[in-house]
């Protein structure tokens, strides 16, 4: 019987073991922290913390290796899926995941992630879409919405000259090697719960050797969006979700019967 510290009290929620006991450098209200926590909770629940190797990317999540209580490497900009491939091919019984932002994965690293998915590489990609380049100060990303103002699209993204946003979960779902490609959002408790379930599924796909899995997480960037954290959640819901619908874009039918 688990009654925690108090005789008649149980712990409903506590910080996962797979997170380091350190402060993050993320801005107040940034949902990177939520995404980190969810991944850590999944690693705890699956009891794989001590056989997991993460691959950090370049961008705000460059220091992810300081925050996860697992082995970690740090990849050049966009190359995390290639690095993860090298690790997974050498240590196929380990859990290998990349944690990448939208500039990293959907712009400079699109080649690496598409090729990894097409190979059915047995890795999990956690993809954070916050519609801009966070670390360099809010420039236009491949995910920036049409009309969205950023420091490099000061008049709003003009699709005539700056093109259209990249819908990564849909795009990667078209590849045969992809077993699981879904989009979730981190803007309210219900969606956070759904995001966690998707992350668990993605890691279970890998644990079962079913090939490439990716969870795209719609995320906020209050600082660069110039909003309070609460305003940014609202903007995500109202502006981003219509363009980036939450949904399952590819789910390997073999997952249907699985319970975890």
């Amino acid at each position: 019987m688990d009654t925690a510290q108090h005789e008649l009290e149980q712990v409903v929620y506590q910080r996962p073991e797979s997170l380091m006991e350190v402060d993050t450098h993320y801005c107040p209200g940034c949902t990177h922290g939520v995404a980190h926590r969810l991944v850590a909770e999944v690693l705890d629940e699956m009891q794989v913390r001590q056989r997991t190797i993460g691959v950090a990317s370049v961008g705000c999540s460059v220091f992810a290796y300081n925050y996860f209580n697992t082995d970690f490497v740090q990849a050049p900009h966009g190359r995390a899926p290639a690095m993860a491939t090298g690790i997974k091919r050498c240590l196929p019984d380990r859990i290998v995941f990349t944690y990448q932002g939208d500039g990293d994965m959907a712009s400079i690293g699109m080649g690496e992630v598409v090729a990894a998915a097409a190979r059915g590489e047995n890795i999990t990609v956690v993809f954070i879409n916050n519609a801009n380049y966070g670390m360099t100060g809010g420039q236009m990303a491949p995910t920036t919405l049409p009309g969205q103002k950023t420091t490099s699209s000061p008049n709003g993204r003009d699709v005539e000259t700056q093109g259209f946003p990249m819908q990564a979960a849909e795009l990667l779902a078209t590849l045969e090697g992809t077993s699981y490609s879904v989009r979730r959002s981190l803007h309210d408790p219900k969606n956070v719960r759904m995001a966690k379930k998707a992350l668990r599924t993605a890691f279970e796909v890998q644990a079962r050797g079913m090939g490439f899995s990716i969870v795209e997480l719609l995320s906020v960037c209050p600082t660069n969006w110039g909003m309070t954290p609460l305003q940014s959640l609202k903007w995500l819901e109202e502006a981003m979700i219509p363009f980036y619908p939450i949904g399952d874009y590819k789910v390997n039918p073999a997952l249907a019967g699985l319970r975890f």
Partner: peptide
Amino acid sequence: CGICAIVCPEAAITVYREV
């Protein structure tokens, strides 16, 4: 209920419930 912990980006909240 734990909802505060679910949205907390810092994983700073521990939640207890009386049995």
